[in-house]
Write a protein that binds this DNA or RNA. Structure first.
Lengths: 111, 111
DNA sequence: CTAATACATAGATACTTATCTATGTGTAAC
DNA sequence: GTTACACATAGATAAGTATCTATGTATTAG
């Protein structure tokens, strides 16, 4: 590439339309994505999605992953905090179900 | 809710179709999602996407975010490692551009 | 060649987080 | 009431990471 003009001044001026995505928006989106950016939580979501009625109790989720029950509870809490799953008590058990609308919102971010 | 039968034994058996998503698959997906689950990297991606030709050099990305140049380089490297952006040298500058196919793969994960 | 510029890399630090064990809470069975 | 069970919470620890400063590398200008 041959040029006589200093490239620095010609081409490296800030382009229009480069205002960054608002930090607060970026942070809330990142919070949602952090929830799914974990292998264990992805496995949990997949298990819930494949389960009957797309819901599962903790007892069904703990053993297949080989992690302790508190660890599973921790991950389910993270997913619930960002609205990806919902809690419902039935007797002794807590059933977690997918929140499909929230799920779809992630897809929309990348379309 | 009234029942005479111990609920534990009736309802808490592992359901079919509950085999977890393979750990290796979950890990590779998580690796991709971790790359976008950061507010600064989301801002970088948004800036590149909005820029002319959907590409930008580091000099255009550093100042608007108020972070040091090595920090921006660090984030761009993370994004490049998972294939979301590509590097191309032009003279002194490195231009980063979006990899739309990779971007779309994320959307497909949540559809 | 030397100097300047654009970006990457190395190393240090502070913050976050995934996991565990131990314990608490709430519901059901008796 | 007591006991058992399902799950949550608390606290500790180890691993990961976002950021900085300092330095290295590569290209261009002169």
């Amino acid at each position: 590439m041959i040029t006589k003009i200093p490239l620095q001044l010609l081409e490296c001026a800030p382009a229009p339309g480069n205002e960054p995505l608002a930090r607060t928006s970026a942070q809330s989106i990142a919070e949602l994505l952090k929830a799914v950016a974990d292998p264990t939580r992805l496995q949990l979501l997949a298990m819930i999605a494949k389960a009957d009625q797309q819901e599962a109790c903790v007892c069904n989720l703990t053993e297949p992953l080989g992690l302790s029950q508190p660890t599973i509870s921790h991950h389910l809490k993270k997913l619930a905090e960002v609205g990806l799953i919902s809690r419902e008590r039935r007797g002794t058990w807590i059933w977690y179900s997918l929140n499909k609308e929230r799920w779809k919102q992630i897809a929309n971010l990348f379309e």
